[in-house]
């Protein structure tokens, strides 16, 4: 690990299968950071905006966001995160099945840092996640609240 800070990965993903596959491939890429998984947007926002519940969350976070959530749209979650002064610098990786151009543009407009389409082809998928792992191992994550 080149990043000395204990970065927590927040994964907001309603499909448990996807979540498991993502986690497996992140681990295969050699990333051992703690992954906190939420299967809906409400719980994830609750956690992000009320850090007192978990003292360990005080450190920097990186968010993996799926756009198709059961309770609210992923773009709404993205907008909430990027609007909040204490969270807007947090890197958000949108990882979703949607490859609609308009949707991708909207996410970047809202301030998403990386947009990745989940390929159905598993080799490509695994490769994408491993690349993401590589990316996670080198990026500098700002402290939250800054």
């Amino acid at each position: 690990m080149s990043n000395p800070l204990p970065v927590t990965i927040i994964m907001i993903e309603d499909d448990l299968g996807h979540a498991r596959l993502i986690e497996k491939n992140i681990r295969r890429a050699g990333i051992s950071n703690h992954i906190t998984h939420f299967d809906n947007g409400t719980a994830a926002l609750e956690f992000l905006f009320n850090p007192t519940q978990d003292p360990a969350r005080r450190g920097p976070v990186l968010i993996l966001l799926d756009l198709n959530l059961p309770d609210m749209s992923g773009t709404a979650v993205l907008a909430r995160i990027k609007e909040a002064p204490e969270l807007h610098r947090t890197p958000v990786v949108v990882l979703t099945t949607t490859d609609d151009r308009v949707e991708i543009q909207r996410c970047y407009d809202l301030g998403c840092n990386v947009y990745i389409t989940k390929p159905v082809n598993y080799e490509s998928f695994a490769e994408a996640i491993r690349q993401l792992g590589l990316f996670l191992s080198v990026i500098q994550i700002p402290e939250s609240g800054g």
Binding site: D15, L21, T97, T98, V120, Y122, F125
Partner: peptide
């Protein structure tokens, strides 16, 4: 077609697993 893709990712993924 979009929503069908989602489970397909799982089928493909876990088939590989």
């Amino acid at each position: 077609s979009h929503d069908l893709r989602s489970p397909l990712v799982n089928v493909m993924g876990f088939t590989s697993e």
